[in-house]
Every structure is written in C-alpha cells, then in structure tokens.
C-alpha cells in the first residue's frame, strides 16, 4: 500500500513539474515568433538614432554635447578631424593591447583616451548614453569590416 502511495506521489510531482515547465515554454519561445516589418523598423530606428547622435558628437556638435552633458574637447578639435569616416578607429579590432594606454583595452577605453589626451576633454561615463552613441557610430561607420579582435 505504502509503495502505491509513494508511486502516486511521485507521479503527481512529475505532472506538476511538467505543467510548470510547459507553461514556462511559452515564455521561452516568445522571441522565436516572427518579427513584423514594423518591429524590425522600430529596432533599426532605435539603432540609427544612436548612430546619428554618435555622428554629431564625433563631429563636435555643441548642442548635442550640451544635451548629453559632456565636454569631448577643449581644443576645438573634434574626433572626426583626425578620423574622417571614423577611419583609423578600427572598432572591429578591439579588444586589444593598446599602445597609448599600455593596457588591454576596449573600444570604450580608447574613446575615453582620445577624449582626455588629444582632445583634452573630459572623460565620459563608459556605460553612459554618449558613450553608447559614439560606439554605435564607430561600428556603423565600419560596418562590413572583418572582425579581427586583437589585431594591431
């Protein structure tokens, strides 16, 4: 009798587990649903707005700097003056050992180095909105480049 009760208890436990698992599956699979064109456009719009902001910051737009409360340069130099089309920035080669910093560095580390050194500006929050926008602009400008982390 005890054995039968134990078996019934075990089966109930298994049924409860399967029920919970099946209900969670709905959530797990949610992202696999097809994206609508509207959704894709919305995602792209979010990205391109960040690229646009990054472009303006990279080209020394004073209003955008004010809006994000950053001071990227005190010399009149903008990032784009040494990096037209974001050339010679190589976002696709980070992380890597960066000679100027003498450390293993990310793209964000290097952006801050350039702000503080050649531009004599003020370091920005590595996870802040200005940094994210600058990063978006770097990657967008170099889209299609071969990913080659660590390359010097």
């Amino acid at each position: 009798m005890r054995k039968i009760l134990r078996w019934r208890g075990g089966l109930l436990l298994l049924a409860a587990f399967l029920f919970v698992f099946a209900s969670r599956m709905d959530h797990v699979q949610a992202h696999k649903e097809k994206h609508t064109p509207e959704q894709l456009k919305a995602f792209q719009d979010v990205f391109m707005e960040q690229v646009r902001i990054g472009d303006l910051l990279f080209h020394g737009d004073g209003d955008t700097e004010k809006k994000f409360d950053v001071n990227l340069s005190k010399t009149g130099m903008a990032c784009a003056m040494c990096h037209p089309f974001a050339s010679d920035t190589h976002p696709h080669e980070f992380p890597k050992f960066q000679e100027q910093i003498q450390e293993f560095a990310t793209l964000r580390d290097m952006i801050n180095w350039c702000i503080e050194n050649p531009n004599e500006g003020e370091r920005i929050d590595v996870n802040g909105p200005a940094m994210k926008a600058l990063e978006a602009y770097h990657y967008w400008s170099n889209k299609g480049s071969v990913l080659d982390p660590g390359k010097h």
């Binding site: 080209h59 190589h90 967008w140 170099n142 071969v146």
Partner: peptide, 9 residues
C-alpha cells in the same frame, strides 16, 4: 579589412 561609410547626419 575595413570598409568605411560616409557620415549619416
């Protein structure tokens, strides 16, 4: 290994 694009703004 790099492809560059004109500015978006």
């Amino acid at each position: 290994n790099q492809i560059l694009r004109p500015r978006v703004a």
